[in-house]
Write a protein that binds this DNA or RNA. Structure first.
Lengths: 388, 388
DNA sequence: ATGTTAAGTCCAGAAGATGGATTAAAACGG
DNA sequence: CCGTTTTAATCCATCTTCTGGACTTAACAT
């Protein structure tokens, strides 16, 4: 429900509005901030003062544009103090990254671990060590880690990883196995948010994160759409052909049976991984090309349904679909264009994510930063209790 | 963007919070309101006073539950003053309804008009007369119409009806043809909202409004999901079978080709309308039964995809699917259950709307009421300018 | 030099929420 | 049956936060 605005929450909210605007509009003077937010110069000045004190923004010198009057001193986000830790448990790797308030990636560590063969306790032991190393290194750069988020390959309910079929995990309360507070979230969702904050700059798009299974994250107006129970975006089990091959989900003809990593490699008759498939595609091998054609068509059908239902502004392909795009994208785009042409609905652009495998980890760190920017007051009071 | 909270908007917002809570928690004392909203008793008292003055709530006598102390005087929404007008242009009818603040339907008028054969100007002339009669009648009951919304059978962009294929209309600025301010909105969306406010009481569901074309409205957390451009919910053109019959949208095998009104009647070999089809189904006619089987299966396939993508809490069938439910629902439910069984995703309940054809008109009026409750301050100042 | 313009700060004041004291109305208990 | 307890609602002084105009500062124009 909409919460009541108390006096202090009004301040917190406005502080967030100001900081958000500083982020959005780059170096900007207090006067311009006042104009944009609708607050008075007085109020903005006081808030900027607090943010300066908390090390969240810096004055970046006079800003003059040949105008007549006194030049304003611009303020912008500071990347020197506040930072966030993003973590990811993948099927065959662990990774961590540290991102500062300006969303600059300050450090990144990846470690190959085959998590299919290890228990949650063991995996999380490795992750803990990785995280500690990252935090120490960030600290040596003068950064303070304000929080962390962990990306996991499966649906999450309130901190509980419900099922990660590719890890063989079920109902693991992942956060409790670490010795620092962490938010746990679905990898597909975080990859979409990674694309939002570190990617092409769209505000409305459907991000397809084809890893071992095909997930999708829908971003509308800069916010993630989660559905009623948080399980939205299961693009992999959208039905492409109702009479198609049986799927482990109980259905038949799910997208995953045509364009999932496993199905694709099998159809292409490739025993290795995606890199080998790409190799063969480059070599023009017919079986491989035909498998990608089929996958591209199936993806087009599934995305057509997705567009009808969710009306995304654009479509961004990530995960395995990024390297395969040259051999898949054409079919997919043709399918979409043909099937959406007859209505007034605009055909969303189809593109590739440039983030590669880092999308989810970046999204995880970005989520922490995003929360701080939305409510800087909380961060100011928790980190500087004696300064009020 | 999140807007800055100025001093006056804080008051407006809290007034909305209080009124919302009065609506949600029925007759409730000021003390309980203070506890729930987190505001102080003083603040709540003052606000309730203003709302009483504006005729939006009434004191409904002492509320005593055998407790020890002084009994509180409960306040609840008043249905005696503020009301809203809901309008609808259908393919073969116009309708209007008046709903008061308590969401009680105070009056309803429907008029059969074949809008396929008339121009927008002509149709809206009829609608205007219908609306005026409704407003007059409401006024004679002491009600004040605070606003109106109009449901139209097609996608709307910012007041512009983009296309209504079943009316043969295109790019009509509907609101300008009436002599009172009106919000224009897609019929499928409003039907979903009608179901939300006047229906079964769910807060998360997908409402399927099968009229001439099949639309769907997704409600999540009590709010309508519109997608990036407001065209989400086109369930009728979700692909059921990629090689199926061609559809006017440019695709093949869209749901509408199996379960749309036209396709269904044709497959059942019925020349009349849905009532005749129901008649034949009751008589056990094989062609009709088989057509419904096929439609039910197709609907199940499309809904499976929709569930995967949007994770609705429940599914509510409205429009033509309500009367046909006994012959369609079983197949649809089987399909959903079978195809969702293998994952942890809960199977959403499948039910029928009890609102019949009135859903969209009710939703239209409800939207106005909902806005007033969210921001009663605006209404109080516009209707009682001298009382501040 | 002097005027003009705009940025940023200062300060009195208004709007609105807060918290404790007070009054009001019921139930309980001897 | 009357005092005690308990809770509701209001009153009032206070506090917080934003507001709006006055003031100071810094650059450019003439």
């Amino acid at each position: 429900m909409t919460q009541a605005v108390r006096h202090d929450s009004m301040r917190a909210r406005n502080l967030g509005v100001v900081l958000h605007e500083i982020r959005r509009s780059g170096p900007i003077t207090r006067a311009a901030l006042a104009e944009i937010t609708g607050l008075t110069k007085t109020t903005v000045s006081k808030m900027v003062g607090d943010l300066l004190g908390g090390g969240m923004v810096v004055e970046s010198g006079a800003l003059r544009e040949g105008e007549r009057g006194r030049p304003g001193t611009a303020v912008s986000l500071s990347g020197d103090r506040v930072a966030a830790l993003g973590l990811e448990i993948g099927v065959d790797h662990l990774s961590a990254c540290v991102v500062d308030l300006t969303l600059s990636v300050r450090l990144r560590r990846t470690q190959a671990v085959d998590n299919r063969s290890t228990s949650p306790v063991e995996t999380l032991h490795h992750l803990r060590k990785l995280a500690h190393r990252a935090v120490d290194e960030a600290r040596s750069k003068g950064l303070v880690i304000a929080g962390s988020t962990l990306a996991v390959p499966g649906p999450v309910d309130d901190g509980l990883l419900r099922a990660a079929p590719n890890l063989g995990w079920r109902d693991v309360r992942v956060g409790d196995l670490l010795d620092f507070p962490v938010t746990v979230e679905n990898e597909a969702n975080l990859a979409a948010l990674g694309e939002l904050w570190f990617g092409s700059g769209h505000d409305d798009f459907l991000h397809v994160s084809g890893e071992a299974n095909i997930g999708a994250g829908l971003v509308v107006g800069g916010a993630l759409f989660r559905g009623a129970r948080g399980h939205a975006g299961e693009l992999g089990h959208v039905i492409v052909s109702p009479g198609g091959p049986a799927c482990h989900c109980g259905g038949r003809g799910c997208l995953e049976q045509y364009a999932g990593q496993e199905a694709l490699l099998k159809a292409a008759d490739v025993l290795g991984g995606i890199p080998e498939l790409v190799e063969r595609l480059r070599g023009g091998e017919t079986t491989a090309l035909r498998a990608c054609d089929r996958a591209g068509q199936a993806l087009g059908v599934a995305l057509t349904s997705a567009v009808r239902l969710t009306d995304p502004g654009a479509i961004v392909l990530g995960g395995i679909f990024a390297p395969l795009f040259p051999w898949i994208g054409g079919r997919t785009r043709d399918m979409l264009t043909a099937r959406l042409a007859g209505t007034r609905q605009a055909v969303p652009g189809l593109g590739v994510s440039r983030l590669g495998g880092a999308a989810a980890t970046l999204g995880a760190a970005g989520q922490v930063i995003h929360r701080i920017i939305a409510d800087p007051g909380a961060h100011l009071t928790t980190t500087r209790p004696g300064t009020a």
